[in-house]
Simulated scan of single mutants.
Amino acid sequence: MTNNGLLNRRSFLYLGLGTAASVGALTMSKAIHPHQQIQAVTPLRRDFSVVGQTPLKQRAASKGLIYGADCGTLNLQSDPELAKVVARECAMLVAGFLKWNLIRPSADSFNFKRGDWFAKFARQQGMLLRGHTLVWHESLPSWFKETVNHQNAQQLLTQHIQKVLRHYAGQMHSWDVVNEAIDPKDGRSDGLRNTPWLKYLGKDYIEYAFRLAAEVDPKALLVYNDFGIEYDTPQHEAKRNAVLKLLERLKSRGVPIHALGIQSHLEANGNKFNPKKLQTFLSRVADMGLKIMITELDVIDKKLPLDTRARDRFVAATYEDYLGAVLQEPAVITVISWGISDRYTWLSEFFRRADGAAVRPLPLDANLKPKLAWNAIARAFDRAPRR
């Protein structure tokens, strides 16, 4: 997920700071899947207890699921404590440093140093590795705008996909081949976002990228990844429909796409979550023979009450309600947190709280201790049907 892009492209419904006194009267009944054994009570009264301290990766694995996280290479290199808890809790790591601007300093050169360190860490810990991302309209290097044009765009894209996938061939569980290519607000009948790739290569750039990726690394799971499809709003409904349209077109043309990635940057105490609508969408994706991955899971607490205990409960309830719904779909195979500790989260920069308090969006706090969010994820795994 990008920075200002998320701010501009999503509508957020939060509990205002001034309503903290009334939170006890709010219920989360609309966000609870009927198959979950959870009482329709306020997050302030919900029981988030878990049995034992079994790591999240083992709880997930017992149900045929993979749990992992995105953690920056520099953070893992400089913070042995973080590396230790990542190895304990996660079965998969996201190599999010493989964006164009981080590995391609010039049109003719690549730098895989950070990526190689990360891949080595994953191997040493017996963890799966996931690549993010091959084709995106953001995180492009400074030379891109002045260099790329109609004449050379396909050549540069081909070179990039071939070079990167060959370098990591056989090491990746999955790749986000194309990221965030849909935006209905751009007004196209097919829902595609107006990007440099669309401008220079036309709508078939998505198909081209998937076919090329499959040729270079046939063992990797190839994923289309996007955001803004989780909630019951007109904007998210339009996005879901456009995603389905894209997936249906790719499948009808025999394109080697294997999974849909749903980023899942969630709204704490969002009152527009409709489990049935989301599950219907997931079922339609699964009916195409596609797997589903939750790829960038976190919970934004920007406008929740300052009180840490209350805030942590609303964040935990958001996790439990969302995962309780999506994990009912057997095609969901992976849950990836976008960070694992509040010590390192992109939300600290792009979704700062007005009161200056530290954000608390992830399973572990800044001291790397489990929070109620960890409990909520653990409970969702424990209650999930076995794959």
Rank of each mutant, 00 (worst) to 15 (best):
N4R: 13
L6M: 12
R10E: 12
S11E: 14
G16Y: 07
L17K: 09
L17V: 12
G18M: 06
T27Y: 08
A31R: 13
P34K: 04
A40W: 10
A40E: 15
R46C: 06
V50G: 04
V51I: 10
A61V: 01
I66W: 14
P80M: 02
R88T: 09
M92E: 09
L93S: 01
K99H: 12
N101F: 03
I103Y: 07
R104P: 08
D108H: 11
W117F: 08
A119F: 07
A119M: 03
R123G: 10
R123A: 14
L128W: 04
H132F: 09
L134V: 01
H137T: 00
S139E: 15
P141L: 04
P141D: 10
Q151W: 10
Q155P: 00
L156K: 00
H160W: 04
V177I: 12
N179M: 04
I182G: 09
D186M: 12
G191C: 14
L192E: 05
D204H: 14
R211F: 08
A213L: 06
Y224F: 14
F227R: 00
E230D: 05
K239G: 02
L247E: 07
L250M: 08
G254R: 02
V255S: 03
H265C: 07
L266P: 02
A268N: 09
P275W: 10
T280V: 13
V285T: 05
M288S: 07
I292C: 08
M293R: 08
T295V: 10
E296N: 11
D301F: 00
T308G: 05
R313V: 03
R313D: 13
A325D: 09
P330G: 05
A331V: 07
V332C: 10
S337W: 00
W338S: 00
I340L: 07
W346T: 04
A357R: 00
R360C: 15
P361C: 08
P363Q: 01
P363A: 04
K371I: 05
K371M: 13
A373H: 07
A373Q: 14
A376C: 11
F381E: 05
D382Q: 10
R386H: 12
